[in-house]
Design a binder for these strands. Structure first.
Lengths: 183, 183
DNA sequence: GTCTATAAGATGATAGAC
DNA sequence: GTCTATCATCTTATAGAC
């Protein structure tokens, strides 16, 4: 039995991923949890606070997942496969995008702190991928490695986005296979 | 002096691109045009109708642009450069995404017809790119060409999305250069 | 922690006058 | 085509009781 704050974040995360920041309301979250909207405000004073909490929790989980991949070791290809697995996991429920991707499209109506967290998250991803590329191609200069990492990152994000438009997870898998060959 | 309906669509398109479907209101559009919200409803009965009109107009412009690229002829690389130019043009105003990309993330709250148009638009893009890939690699089988086309499409979409998070158009240019090398 | 009650404002949409 | 006026509903958020 998860705490109320946790439940609220779970539901908010799902709604953000399917409808975006502007697509959920305190009342809806409250009724799903089985409480009143005033009680949601007790845990998260403003809507921005709730979005920030959801974002922070997700980033923390993601950091842990990346650390685990690094810890398990193995080839660069194996690590990229595991990284792609993180994306695949987020597609699980169709019609949902990863939290940070959806929030990124809502950045114009988000509190400044959330936008900053979003930018930091992006940089973290590209840096991790850049290190991965460098580890496989020891003679490649840093700039080239970063460009390749950016391509991989963009392709995976685009692949996730595409699933929504083509209505099939296969699209993601096909792009993911091509991405693996890029490394 | 553009007609009122045109003006409404222009403003709606800008708002959809920066804040999404749920981020604009009839009253705001009306006050920007200099009329009242009831008059906006005269031209576009419902919010969904307005979104559909904006989407249809954009798709028509895009179709024309693709036809022009085909008409001008030249190498496959030249055509891909021109195709990438269509994306670059849409980034012009920072903090804005292409209409169809933004609407795609809002698909859960969009009228069914708009979602269908979105899916058709996606298919059109991948098909055009598939033909392009096939024209350069005459011996490549159709399936492989489509996979490569999907990769290119995903990477370009991801590149546009990334501009928002990294706050620099250079990110797009770097990925675009890598994409050119993929063909 | 959760509730009731309510504020204060925005929203999509319509009726009917001009 | 555009207006005024209005409806019914939803929104985030707060005050104060339990």
């Amino acid at each position: 039995m998860a705490g109320t704050a946790e439940q609220i974040m779970d539901i908010a995360e799902g709604l953000i991923r399917s409808r975006g920041y502007q697509g959920f309301a305190f009342r809806e979250i409250a009724s799903t949890v089985g409480i009143k909207s005033a009680s949601v405000h007790y845990h998260f004073p403003t809507k921005g606070d709730l979005a920030q909490a959801v974002m922070d929790r997700h980033v923390a989980q993601f950091d842990t997942a990346l650390a685990e991949i690094d810890q398990q070791g193995g080839s660069a290809d194996k690590k990229l496969k595991a990284y792609i697995g993180l994306y695949r996991r987020e597609i699980g429920k169709q019609k949902e995008l990863p939290v940070c991707m959806m929030l990124s499209t809502d950045s114009e109506v988000l509190p400044e702190d959330v936008v900053k967290a979003l930018q930091a998250y992006y940089k973290l991803n590209v840096k991790w991928l850049t290190d991965l590329v460098s580890s496989k191609h020891s003679k490649m200069d840093a700039k080239t490695a970063k460009r390749k990492a950016s391509l991989i990152h963009a392709a995976l994000n685009g692949a996730v986005l595409g699933v929504r438009s083509v209505n099939s997870k296969q699209y993601f898998e096909q792009v993911a296979d091509e991405v693996l060959a890029l490394l």
